[in-house]
Design a binder for these strands. Structure first.
Lengths: 120, 120
DNA sequence: CGGAATCCCACGCGATACTG
DNA sequence: CAGTATCGCGTGGGATTCCG
């Protein structure tokens, strides 16, 4: 049994799930993997996430050491987020998750459809 | 936007998270990756999971197509669970998650400890 | 622009007891 | 042995409003 940050885990894979699970976390990481993004840009990229949720998840990812928050002391405020070194190391895994997801849904073609609209 | 089983996803990786997230799912998959297991064995392997939770998670994994439930019509009842073909394909990814988890916690040696006791 | 504060709800999870 | 059936709560997620 591993204790990490005062929480017990049966396997280190569960720790990784804590890092990337939770709504918006993967989407944020995916966007940041393409390069640094400002808060406002992120809002437009993830139009269904409320400001509150984005802020919360970004702070969590930051305290997990996966992303870096950089504040430019200008007016109007400018805050930029980017992957940390650890976060960069996560990218190949995100790709693998994505790949297996594609493989998986290919086994259930009847249950898949696509939608263009951004909401929901 | 992908719709899979009536649920929207921004990326197929989010589908995979739905498959392996949720308490006990990864632990169950890890145990089954070593070979078929009976319900009772699983209970002993995961002593902190209640019967209800084990049953629920097993049924979910089954309906997700990752595991197979085989009932032997004997008395007392004998039910065996094993990975499906799809489930087997998941194993390398579980290994990778585990590996990255180890890499990750190595970055925070102060926040890691170990415990022998099975509870919590 | 990039938040923080407040309020609220669904549901994932669990404890416990019962059963073919 | 391998499950249901009930009940209850914590917390993750969200809508809304206000702020420097």
């Amino acid at each position: 049994m591993i204790i990490f940050r005062d929480k017990p885990y049966r396997c280190t894979s569960e720790i990784v799930l804590d890092l990337v699970s939770g709504k918006w976390r993967i989407s944020i990481l995916n966007e940041l993997s393409k390069g640094p993004v400002r808060f406002n840009q992120l809002q437009r990229l993830l139009p269904n996430a409320t400001q509150r949720m984005l802020t919360m998840k970004l702070r969590m990812l930051e305290s997990d050491g996966l992303i870096i928050r950089k504040v430019y002391p200008v007016s109007p405020p400018r805050v930029e987020y980017r992957l940390s070194e650890l976060g960069e190391q996560l990218v190949p895994m995100l790709t693998m998750l994505c790949d297996f997801g594609s493989t998986y849904i290919d086994s259930f073609p009847d249950e898949v459809s696509y939608s263009d609209h951004k909401h929901a």
